[in-house]
Simulated assay, not measured.
Amino acid sequence: MDVYNVHERELPGTPHEVGALLDSLAGEQDRLWPGSGWPPMAFDRPLGEGATGGHGPVRYRVAAYVPGKWVRFTFSAPRGFDGFHEYAVLAVDGDRTLLRHTLAMRARGAARLTWPVLWGPLHDACLEDGLDLAERTCAGEVARPARHSAYVRALLRLMAPARAVG
């Protein structure tokens, strides 16, 4: 099963300003990855090509990184996630910038079931929470905050004990 998933948000700020959010990923002052309720993004070293890590059970390697502009991660787990996800910072005009996250993969084996039932809904909610954080950082508020569906809230409650242990 092929999966192509895009989340994006137009933000006030120059590409340089929005690019700083990208560069903060997995750092002490991360201003892009959502905090509460989500496993933190962490790597074995600072964000850069070759760093390995991920968030929770989703593992990946930094395949390419252009500071302030683009980062691509290739999946190593869960089993059956063959592909990548990436963030890109794209100029719209002088004071507006598009922050885009793209996931492209082929789901194999059990992932053909777990992606649409578990990982996909959680991925969508996590990315929208992260884009809310980016917008709050750039604009001071979020015009239309993401809302989790009842299904996603139930998944998060079920996963909470595992996050507390691991």
Rank of each mutant, 00 (worst) to 15 (best):
D2G: 13
V3C: 09
N5C: 11
E8K: 14
R9L: 12
L11M: 14
P12S: 13
T14M: 07
T14P: 10
P15H: 14
P15V: 15
V18W: 05
A20G: 14
D23W: 14
S24P: 07
D30H: 07
R31F: 06
W33T: 04
G37W: 02
W38T: 06
F43W: 09
L47H: 12
G50N: 06
A51S: 08
T52F: 08
P57Q: 04
V58I: 05
R59Y: 02
Y60A: 04
A64V: 03
A64T: 01
V66C: 08
P67V: 00
F73R: 00
F75G: 01
A77D: 01
P78Q: 01
R79A: 13
F81P: 00
G83E: 01
Y87L: 05
A88F: 03
A91Q: 07
A91I: 15
V92W: 11
V92A: 11
V92C: 05
T97I: 09
L103M: 13
M105K: 11
M105H: 12
R106M: 10
A107D: 12
R108W: 08
A111G: 10
P116Q: 11
L118A: 14
W119L: 15
W119Q: 06
G120L: 05
G120N: 06
D124R: 11
E128L: 11
D129G: 12
D129T: 06
D129I: 13
L131S: 11
D132V: 09
L133S: 05
R136K: 04
C138G: 02
C138K: 00
A139C: 11
G140E: 08
A146P: 03
A146E: 01
H148T: 10
S149A: 00
A150Y: 07
A154V: 12
A154N: 05
L155V: 06
A160R: 07
A162N: 06
A162V: 14
V165I: 08
